[in-house]
Amino acid sequence: MLKAVNDTIGGTPIGTAAESDRVFVRSRQQALRRALRAVLQVVNYAGLLVLVLVFAMPFAWMLSTSLKTLPETMIFPPEWIPSNPVWQNFADAWNTGPFLSYFVNSVVIAVGILVLQMLTIIPASYAFARYKFKGSGFLFGIVMVTLMIPGQLIFLPVYLELSAFKLLNTHLGLILPFASSAFGIFLLRQAFMQISDELLEAARLDQAAEWKIILQIMVPMVKPVLVTFALFSFIAHWNDYFWPLVMTTNETARTLPLGIAKIREVEGVATWNTLMAGNLILVAPILLVFFLSQRQIIKAFVYNGVK
């Protein structure tokens, strides 16, 4: 700062005393402004840091607890880094039930839902965004209405339906009710609508068939949105507890969240350390997916189109 003051004075030919006074006042104002900016920056970073802590703390707590012995989980003040990490907790969690089967079921169901959703929402949203056909407004209205109906309201009829089709306790029974997504159709339709007509016209003049226009031009352009939706959908169904719980009566199609909920019941005591180890097993794949698609997600939120 001192250097800046010197620079200003040095840069101005010093004439009368009044003039040099004025220069001095001006440079002091500049220094003040700079100091104020620095303070604001510190406040800003401090605020961000608090936010990071709020979001990261439970996570760190989970990680820490998963490596403790049961008595250690109750110590106050808590010990953040356990002196002797107990890796056995993960094995214990895994062995409380048929975890391999849970894991496979979770993967099959979450991926199955995702694939089916992609197959349905891309054509649907493209049609809603790009074609004007009779009743398109009405049909889109119906899609939107389904957004407002909570799963808890329809699970009973769906249960009866699945039961009639003998789909209870099967993967298909857990996948089919989510084969499409109103939210996905809405999100993707908005993205498709933002693409300029001229691009489609150019493709038509390039003799591209409709499916080629969709797959080679439109879908790559909405990729960030698509990836974001895929991630939301994957996380939602990976973590879903309610639906698999009510649609299964035995272990054949049960998923990870159900298995983890069962850990707590072991021996009638809350085994927090094993539970947290189980939770880590549950979130690990999601973290992996997030890291892989991080760039796309950030792009989706700051997406400003291509001119």
Binding site: E201, A202, I217
Partner: peptide, 18 residues
């Protein structure tokens, strides 16, 4: 349009961005 043997240059170029 694709079969008319016509090529078009658009005002905003309409290049495929991806």
């Amino acid at each position: 349009p694709g079969l008319r043997d016509v090529a078009m240059v658009f005002q905003n170029y309409a290049l495929y961005p991806t």
